[in-house]
Structure formats: structure tokens, C-alpha cells
């Protein structure tokens, strides 16, 4: 299998005054193209920091991170933005849609920064909104939608740029169970289309439905291929 993400010996330290906190300790992680991986762990374990590093939103003290063969530490800010725009789609727990923009305009944002023509953008936005079933509401603003619909828009925005990787941070965290199931169905469907998805979640049931589960505990990553291994790791982390 071809690697999309290759992380070796990544260390991340947060400093507050004189106090240093090791958020990630010598993390090694490899994710293949087309995988659907979940990252689990208690609050403060470092799972969101890991997701931010993968998303090129956070730098790190040492180690190596290659996204689709490109070494992240060699990129300046502009290059990182370009790579993020081209390769990564984000889905956040709180949707992070821009309130004053219509659904159409929200989905168009990453395409604008990629320098696509108006015609290309229109085609991509339409495809994405049709996929999530909201093309008919393209002129609506986010505050005119339910939570589940907003998350569908966020998914459409993440997909519009046809990225290699979709990073989802607690994508169902703000949704009721019915809405959450609907969003997860959509993610499975997207994964089946060949997209790589890395999802941070607290929900064991959702995590169990992904191809691989990763446990983060005190900044240390344990990769578990079976649910039994994961349960053992979880027990150890809460002990």
C-alpha cells in the first residue's frame, strides 16, 4: 500500500512560562492512501495536537512528517498553505463555516485560494452540494440550517477541493445520534470513493467502524488493529 502520511519520532512541547508540557513523545505513525483511521484518547492526551500536525496547522520540535511524500518541516508558511489547500480537507466539530457567507460561498472558499476559474468553482461546488443533498439550499446561510445540515456543508467544503486527505475532528460531537449516524454514513461513502480519512473521536462505536484505531495516551501513540487491543490500551490509559 502507498503511504499518504509518514510520521517518525515527532515530538511536540507546549511551553507556558517556565512550564513545558510534552504533548507528543516520539510519535511514529503511518497511514496509507484510502484508509479510514480513527484516533482515540482522553482529553489532553495529544490527539488534537497530532491532528493539527497532520493538518499542517501546528509545527513540531523534532522528527519527520511526510504528507504524500513532501517533508512538512521543509515548507515555509506559504508553501504549507498551498499544500494544505491542495491535499487536505477539514471537518470540525463546530463546523467552522463562515457565518456571513452563503453555503455556495462557504464551499467556494478553498477553491478561490487555489486560483480556480469561476466555471471550475461552480462545477465543484455543485458536485459537492449535490453529494450532501443541499444544492437546493445553496443560497442559504449557515444559521438557517440545522446542526446536521451544517456538518454536511462542512463535509461538502472539505470534498470540494478533491483532497487526498480528510481530517475530521469530532465530526459528530455536536450532533444528536440520528444526525451523527447520517454524517458517518456520508463519511463511509466518501471513504469508499477512495478518500483517506483521519477522524478524532470519543465515540467507541464510531471508532469501531473505522478500518484502524489509534490510541493516544499522554502523547504516546499506540496503533491497535483489533478492538480487544484497543480496549486494553484504553484501560491502561485510564488506570
Amino acid at each position: 500500500m502507498e503511504h499518504l502520511i509518514e510520521i517518525k519520532k515527532i515530538r511536540k512541547v507546549f511551553k507556558t512560562g517556565t512550564v513545558a508540557t510534552n504533548a507528543l513523545r516520539d510519535v511514529d505513525l503511518t497511514i496509507n492512501k484510502g484508509e479510514f483511521v480513527s484516533i482515540k484518547g482522553p482529553s489532553g492526551s495529544g490527539k488534537s495536537t497530532l491532528l493539527n500536525i497532520i493538518g499542517l496547522l501546528e509545527d513540531y520540535e523534532s522528527g519527520s512528517y511526510k504528507l504524500d511524500g513532501v517533508e512538512a518541516s521543509s515548507l515555509n508558511d506559504d508553501q504549507a498553505s498551498e499544500l494544505r489547500n491542495e491535499k487536505i480537507g477539514f471537518i470540525f466539530q463546530n463546523f467552522n463555516l463562515i457565518a456571513e457567507l452563503s453555503l455556495y460561498d462557504n464551499i467556494e472558499v478553498p477553491l478561490i485560494y487555489r486560483g480556480m476559474t469561476s466555471q471550475e468553482r461552480k462545477q465543484r461546488v455543485e458536485e459537492s452540494l449535490r453529494l450532501v443533498g443541499l444544492w437546493g439550499r445553496k443560497e442559504h446561510r449557515p444559521d438557517q440550517l440545522s446542526g446536521g445540515q451544517r456538518q454536511r456543508v462542512a463535509i461538502a467544503r472539505a470534498l470540494a477541493g478533491k483532497p487526498s486527505l480528510i481530517l475530521a475532528d469530532e465530526p459528530t460531537g455536536n450532533l444528536d445520534s440520528e444526525m451523527a449516524a447520517s454524517v458517518m454514513d456520508l463519511l463511509y461513502q466518501i471513504n469508499e470513493m477512495g478518500n483517506t480519512i483521519v477522524m478524532v473521536t470519543h465515540d467507541d462505536e464510531l471508532a469501531s467502524k473505522t478500518q484502524r484505531q489509534i490510541q493516544v495516551t499522554d502523547g504516546v501513540v499506540k496503533q491497535c488493529d483489533t478492538e480487544t487491543e484497543l480496549l486494553k490500551e484504553q484501560e491502561a490509559s485510564y488506570a
Partner: peptide
């Protein structure tokens, strides 16, 4: 602030 962060996450360069 939040809008800036969203746009940066979606690939906007700082100078843009």
C-alpha cells in the same frame, strides 16, 4: 479571528 483561522486552514496564504 475565527474567520481568519478558518480561511488559513482552508489554504489562504497570510499575504492573500
Amino acid at each position: 479571528t475565527r474567520e481568519v483561522c478558518i480561511r488559513r486552514a482552508l489554504g489562504a496564504k497570510r499575504k492573500v
